[in-house]
């Protein structure tokens, strides 16, 4: 995109209190309308490919100009394919293991990690970790991190003028159960501004890191909350150009998971991509 000149890393220098800081005069700062046009172009190109018979694309392209930080950080050569059916000894068909020494009981409750209670709307996020055959991924590590209820991360480089919460760090870990289940208690994170373009705001989200039974299934992603009005404006969510795939990043509000006088419940199942050793045995 010729109109895009990466200068400072857009996400690491979020606007301080006053208007946007002075920068070396480059080009006109990109507006939301500029980004909207780029998002629309990318989506139209994808839908044209689909209409032409292309397979649905589950993951975002690495070259996605509306998310400006991708411009210098995506490979231009196509990835080299490794067919694991021909290579059952591939290291990537197995996964690191985690166990009881790696997680404490309090790790899954982000509201109990400090002396006091964090501010915000108390929620639970529960679901199952599955492979693409729908089988549970058992005993594996899920890590999550998030901004606090005001939209601020406990990270020195986040200078968004929203308050830090001394009772909230925003880090959780859990090992999945025998049915692949997991559950976290936390507070709903706030939306926050970032420096991708003028007036850029991220919808509220929780970052997730997941391991499968094979290293090929490794996944880092973000979970969103239903009905967020910021979805359409966010180039990170829109980097997933397939509408059905985007919908899989949005948790469902589940009233049966809400606890009276205590917390609101969200359900989010996670499906890991990529081959695993057991697929090979079954496929032969």
């Amino acid at each position: 995109m010729p109109e895009v000149t990466p200068e400072t890393p857009p996400e690491t220098t979020r606007s301080p209190a006053a208007p946007l800081p002075e920068q070396a005069p480059v080009q006109r700062e990109l507006t939301q309308a500029d980004i909207d046009r780029q998002i629309a172009r990318e989506r139209q190109a994808y839908e044209k490919d689909l209409a032409g018979g292309a397979e649905p694309r589950h993951h975002p392209p690495r070259d996605y100009a509306p998310y400006r930080s991708s411009i210098l950080r995506h490979p231009t050569q196509p990835p080299v394919a490794i067919d694991t059916r021909l290579d059952p000894e591939a290291v990537e068909l197995s996964s690191p293991a985690f166990g009881r020494t790696d997680v404490t009981e309090l790790d899954s409750d982000l509201t109990r990690q400090h002396q006091g209670e964090p501010l915000g709307e108390r929620i639970t996020v529960s679901g199952r970790l599955l492979d693409r055959d729908g089988r549970p991924v058992r005993g594996q590590l899920i890590e999550l991190w998030q901004a606090n209820a005001s939209g601020r991360y406990a990270h020195q480089r986040d200078q968004h003028p929203a308050p830090l919460d001394p009772n909230f760090t925003g880090v959780g870990r859990v090992l999945t159960g025998d049915d692949g289940s997991y559950s976290f208690t936390t507070v709903k994170p706030g939306a926050y501004p970032w420096r991708n373009h003028a007036n850029a705001w991220r919808p509220a989200h929780i970052h997730f890191s997941l391991f499968g039974t094979a290293f090929t299934q490794r996944l880092v992603t973000q979970m969103y909350f239903p009905g967020d009005p910021l979805f359409a404006y966010d180039p990170i969510l829109q980097s997933v150009t397939d509408e059905a795939a985007r919908a899989r990043l949005v948790a469902a509000y589940d009233h049966d998971l809400s606890r009276p006088e205590w917390s609101l419940g969200y359900r989010w199942d996670i499906v890991l991509d990529g081959p695993a050793a057991t697929w090979i045995e079954e496929g032969r």
Binding site: T169, G170, V220, A245
Partner: peptide
């Protein structure tokens, strides 16, 4: 089953 899409790790994973 269709997979959960990937997303960037972002800039603020450092405390997690």
């Amino acid at each position: 089953t269709p997979p959960t899409p990937s997303h960037t790790i972002g800039p603020f994973y450092g405390y997690a």
